[in-house]
């Protein structure tokens, strides 16, 4: 991959294209993606708006908004796009860009969820839901969300309470380190 100094100066669309192999310029704004998007009624920017802003290189508007973080990656938009633009993967790439460059970050609850989740995998190699829910609550501040459902869930034998580490946990940690180092390198000169 080419150095960030050059990608900075290049257009956002080119950067996306380089990361994903998809070409945002192909989007002709038919709006079919937004018509099927389950989150469109909750987001300010719908998928076709996002595509238009990518074409215009408006990082400011894309990264100042929650919309890219509220995408569920359900892939409906990509399946229905008549022009194979691939909005879902393009939105993935926008989130990665935002995180790597520090230009944007997810809303608190969503960030807390991803952090707790990944931390569990790093620590044990797998997710043990009880620990994940506890970690999520601490990080997001949503202390009482869903607490009422915990005893019922346990009664049904549905929460694995004691985490066991997988044998290859060091393997998993090395993979995490290598992947985050690679992500950091993308943005440093």
């Amino acid at each position: 991959m080419s150095g960030p100094a050059s990608t900075r100066r290049s257009t956002l669309a080119a950067e996306i294209r380089q990361r994903t192999g998809l070409n945002p310029a192909r989007c002709y704004q038919c709006g079919k993606c937004s018509a099927g998007c389950p989150m469109a009624q909750e987001t300010r920017l719908r998928p076709h708006d996002i595509l238009r802003l990518v074409q215009r290189g408006r990082r400011d508007r894309l990264f100042a908004d929650d919309s890219i973080w509220l995408c569920l990656t359900c892939e409906t938009c990509s399946a229905r796009c008549p022009n194979e633009v691939g909005p879902a993967r393009i939105i993935d790439a926008l989130r990665e860009l935002a995180l790597e460059s520090g230009e944007g970050e997810p809303p608190r609850a969503i960030r807390a969820f991803h952090e707790s989740f990944l931390k569990q995998i790093r620590r044990h190699g797998r997710i043990f839901e009880f620990g994940m829910i506890a970690g999520f609550k601490l990080r997001s501040g949503k202390l009482f969300a869903d607490v009422a459902k915990m005893p019922a869930t346990m009664k049904r034998g549905k929460l694995a309470l004691s985490p066991r580490r997988i044998a290859g946990v060091d393997d998993v940690r090395r993979i995490f380190d290598a992947c985050s180092a690679a992500a950091r390198k993308e943005v440093q000169p």
Binding site: T73, A93, F117, C179, S180
Partner: peptide
């Protein structure tokens, strides 16, 4: 989703 939404390589 958490790896998918934050680090493609991971």
């Amino acid at each position: 989703t958490s790896a998918h939404a934050t680090n493609h390589l991971l």
